[in-house]
Amino acid sequence: MSRLQARELTLAYEDRTVVEELDLAIPDGRVTVIVGPNACGKSTTLRALGRLLRPAGGAVLLDGEELAKLPTKRIARSIGLLPQTPVAPEAITVADLVSRGRQPHQAWWKQWSEEDERAVTDAMERTDVAALADRSVDALSGGQRQRVWIAMALAQETDLLLLDEPTTYLDISHQVEVLDLVRRLNRLRGRTVVLVLHDLNQAARYADHLVAMKAGRVVAEGPPEEIVTAELVRDVFGLSSVVVPDPVTGSPLVVPGAPWGAEEPVRS
C-alpha cells in the first residue's frame, strides 16, 4: 500500500526540466531512500512529494487526492518535511523551535493544548534534546541542531516524514546517530520515512526500499540487497566498484574500485 504516490510527475525550474514523467509509490511503514548523483533530481522529487514544488506535469497523490488541490494545512497534518538547509529565526530557543512543529494542529484561538505539550515533550525526548530545551539554537553544535530540527518535524506528528539529506554537514558519528534515530522512529512508530541521501552505502544500510535516480528518471528500485550491484553503480554514478556484504549488517557495501587510476603504473 502507498499513501503517497507520484504519477507521471514532471518537474521543472523555470523552463529547465529536471524530472520527467516519474512514477513512484512510497511503500507505507517503510524507510525509502532516494539516491543518485548530484543534480539527478532526487531533492527536487522530494520537494514535489512534500508540495514545496508545484509539478509542471503529472501529479503527486496523497491518499488518492492530488496534492496541489489539497489545503496546505491539511497536507501538513499528514506529511512532515525537513528541507536541506532549514533556517531558524535568530535567538530562538530549542523548545520554542520544536513547538513550532505543532503549527498545523493549532489555530489563532487555540495556541496550545495538552496534545501539543505531549507531542513536543515526546519529540524532544525521542531526539534526546530535552536537556537543551532552554538553549538558543544558534549556540548548538551541528549534530545537536539537526536533532532539534528533526524534533520539530516529529512534533508535527505526521504519518509520513520526508527528510532531505539530513546528514549533510555532520561528521560520521552524528550521521549514524541521525540515521539510527530515523530508523527507530520507523520501527517503533511505524512512520513512513522518505530520505534523500547521497552516500550510497548509508542508503543501502538504512533503506527498506531503495530508489536509484539518474538524470531525472528512476533507474532501479527495490530492496537494496536485490538492486545494488556493480552494474547499477557504474550505470548511476559512472564508477567502477566492487559490491561486498557489509560486515555488520549484511547489506550491500559499495567499495570503489581502481583507486587513483591504479591501472596506470605506479610511479616511484
Binding site: R47, G50, L52, R74, I75, A76
Partner: peptide
C-alpha cells in the same frame, strides 16, 4: 520568521 520551505511544510500559506 522560519525559512520558506519549513514554513510551507508546516502548512502555512
Amino acid at each position: 520568521s522560519l525559512d520558506d520551505d519549513t514554513a510551507t511544510a508546516l502548512g502555512v500559506r
